[in-house]
Every structure is written in structure tokens, then in C-alpha cells.
Simulated assay, not measured.
Amino acid sequence: MVITLIKATIYWVAILYALAAGLYFWGEAAGKRPVLRLAWILAGTGCFSNLLLLVLRGILTGRLPLSNGSEFLLSFTWITVGLYLCLETRRQLKGVGGYVMFIAALFMLIVLMVMKGQLMETSPLMPALKSPWLSIHVLTAALAYAGFTLAAGLAAKKLFQADAGLMPDPIYRIIAAAFALLSLSIVSGAVWAEQVWGSYWTWDPKETWALITWIIYALYLHLYKKQNWQGRYACLVVMTGYLLVLFTFFGVNFLLPGLHSYAVQCINNTFVC
């Protein structure tokens, strides 16, 4: 019963996010407030359904849904959409919804096409993953990635819509918060790694690319703070940082073997963030 609900819900969430993205783009281009309102409702319904999907996954496995790629992506997407809806309500940034919801729909498509089997997987966790550091490390990473996704959506609006009229301050504040969370994720991961592998840092591909991502965002924050750096080039750096975020998760997990890919070989294509 739970597996059947999971299968149905994942399709439902993907459809809702895709429809919301299309309505956001259409409503913004045509200036139709009722369409934007409908897009918000669909996005909110998708966010709630995304949460239901995580709950169902937790019921199926008997643990928090944070231990494999599909669980992380579902959690990361849910946090992203939830944060965006709160931000839209507070700042009326409806024009950004199309970009954010498009990314959310794309992630759901990836889960369906690449990670669908993981949603039904019920194998017990490896000993290395049975640690309280798992929740800390993965949750902070998911929150950081969600913040970087919102910042990328804001930057995309500035780059592709000349009349966006969007001040850069929201981008800076979101990246500053996400950067702090990414730093916490890296530190907690290092402590966890020392307990599991006997070393805080091994220059594993995941660690290396996470560090490169951290440096790019640190550079953006430094230049913005010291030189009030903004505009097109600042947005391009934000987008570059987000591409590195995506590569750190997708590219490294699938393309670059390392300590973080041990679970891929052992638990039915399972990997963590």
C-alpha cells in the first residue's frame, strides 16, 4: 500500500511542479495576477505532496528519509520550494517562481528516470551511515543547496529579464545564510569522516568539489562585502556556483569514484549527499 502511494505521489508532485513552473512563466510574461495566484496554489500543493512523499518514505523504511540520493533530492526539493513560497509571500518575488519551480520539476524528473528504484528500496543502512552525524550533515547540506537554488533563480531573473528591477541584497543574504550552512555541513562531514574513516579530510572527489564550491561562494561574499560587487558578473558567479553545487551532487556521485561512492557499490545505487 505504501509503495503504491509513493509511486502515485511522485508522479503527482512532478506534474504539479511542472504546471506551476509554466503558470509562473506565463503569468509573469502576461502580467496576469490570477494565473500567478494559481501557480502559487499549485506550487503549495506540490510542496505539501512532496512532504507527504517524504513521510511515506519514512514509514516504509522506519527512519528519516535522508540516506540515499532520491531521499536527499526529495528533501532538498521540498525545502527549496517551501523556502521560495515563504520568500514570495514576504517579498512578492513572483517572477522568480518559474525558474525555481522549473528546477524543482527537473529534479522530480531525475528521481523518476534515474533514482526511481531507490524510492522502493528498504535495505538496512550500512554501519557507516548509522550515525547521528548523518542527519546533521545531510540536513545542513539540503538547506544550503536549497538556498543556493533560490539565489540561482534570483540571479537568472536578473540576467534574463532586463526589467526585473530586483535588488541584489536578497541574493547576497540568501547566499550568506546558505554559505554558513554549507560550512557547517562540511565541518560535520569532516567530524563524521574521522569517526568512520579515521581522517577528517581525504581529498575525496566529493570533499574536493564541495571545497571548490565553498571557495566560489566565499569569493562572491567577499567581493560583495568589500567592493559592493553586483550586476551581471556577480550573477554569473552565483550561477557558476550553483552549477558546481549540481556537479558536486550529480557529477561526483555518478562519475567520480571515491569514499563517498562506497554506498553506490553496496546498497543498490545508494549514495548520500
Rank of each mutant, 00 (worst) to 15 (best):
A104T: 12
A43N: 08
V100W: 01
A141Y: 04
L129P: 15
A178F: 11
F72V: 14
G165E: 08
A155I: 01
G82L: 14
I174Y: 04
V81W: 01
F160E: 07
N50T: 12
I175P: 00
F72D: 12
V96A: 04
F160G: 10
I41A: 15
G97L: 05
G69Y: 00
I171L: 01
N50K: 04
A146V: 13
Y84W: 09
F148H: 11
I174D: 03
G165M: 07
G95E: 03
F148M: 14
L73S: 08
G58V: 13
T140H: 00
T89C: 01
T77Y: 00
I59F: 02
W40F: 13
A144E: 11
G46W: 06
G44D: 12
L143F: 07
D169E: 12
T140I: 01
V96L: 10
R173K: 09
R91L: 09
Y145C: 10
L42G: 08
L109E: 14
L166V: 09
S131F: 02
K130E: 12
T140D: 02
L73M: 13
G147V: 06
G117V: 14
A177C: 07
L139R: 04
I110S: 08
G97N: 09
G165L: 07
G117Y: 06
T80I: 05
S131P: 06
A176Q: 07
L125Y: 10
A177Q: 07
S131G: 07
P65L: 11
L143V: 10
I136E: 01
K130C: 05
G58M: 10
M167K: 13
L51M: 09
L38V: 15
M167R: 10
A151L: 11
A104N: 11
A128L: 14
M126R: 12
Q161F: 10
W40R: 14
Y172M: 00
T80H: 05
A164I: 07
R173V: 04
L106A: 10
M167V: 04
M120K: 03
V100A: 12
L184Y: 03
A178G: 15
T89I: 05
